[in-house]
Amino acid sequence: MATVAAAVAVTATLAGCGSDDKNSATATSTASTSAAVVATAPAPTADQLQAVLTAFADPAKPAADKAKLVVDGDKRIPLIETMNQGLANYAVTFTVGEIKTSGNQADAKVTVGSPHGSMPDVPMSFQYVDGSWKLADSGACTILGMARAACQP
């Protein structure tokens, strides 16, 4: 996404340099500002990331809906369906702790709770895509693996 934003900014700047139109400086400035906004993601809150995880592990939520919570989630639908079956009568909770962001990436330490106990400091990755924070494929694979629906390389 940052590459696209940079390309838009460069294209807008080059277009502005070759024009005699007095409004070209304004257009260039607006295009550059818009590109910067696209490249900068708002810092996620623990509640936002926890909501993504909770929805992803909700066995009542259809796999197609869960796929929308994951970057490129459509490729994981069969595994999500397997996870849904495994979690049908099994409650899983998440508590998001330390969050570190860099651009449109966020890494968090998550405590995963289950009827058998909790697992602290599980690393989870998220990406800011299409205006919302989504579970990165690696984060989805971590949860799917816990539900015995492991991703294959």
Rank of each mutant, 00 (worst) to 15 (best):
A7P: 05
I99F: 01
T54L: 03
G145Q: 09
Q105H: 07
A39T: 06
K66F: 00
A46W: 00
A150T: 11
M124L: 12
A51E: 02
F126T: 05
A60C: 09
T40I: 10
M119G: 01
F94W: 12
A41Q: 12
V92S: 00
P123D: 14
L87S: 15
S24Q: 12
F126M: 09
V52W: 01
Q85H: 13
G97H: 09
S19N: 04
M119Y: 00
G145R: 07
L87P: 10
D47C: 08
L144S: 11
V92F: 00
T28C: 15
V8P: 06
V129F: 15
A55M: 03
T142E: 08
V4W: 09
I99R: 04
S19P: 05
T28R: 01
L144Y: 05
S132E: 14
A57N: 13
C17T: 06
K68W: 11
L135E: 06
D121E: 09
K68G: 13
A6T: 06
A57H: 14
A67H: 06
D21Q: 09
K61F: 04
A57L: 05
D137M: 11
A88M: 13
Q48T: 04
I99T: 02
D107A: 15
A140L: 04
A43E: 10
K68A: 12
P59V: 12
T45N: 04
V38Q: 05
N23L: 13
C17L: 07
A25Q: 13
L87I: 11
V52Y: 00
H116M: 03
R76L: 10
T30R: 13
S102Y: 12
V70A: 05
A55Y: 03
G73E: 14
K134L: 10
T101R: 09
V71W: 12
T11I: 07
I99H: 01
C141L: 07
V4S: 15
A149H: 05
A39R: 12
V52K: 00
G103E: 04
V10C: 07
D65E: 02
L53H: 04
G139W: 08
V122Y: 03
S138L: 03
D20G: 10
A150S: 12
K134Y: 08
D21C: 14
A5E: 04
L144W: 13
A27M: 15
S125Y: 10
W133R: 05
S118D: 00
K22A: 15
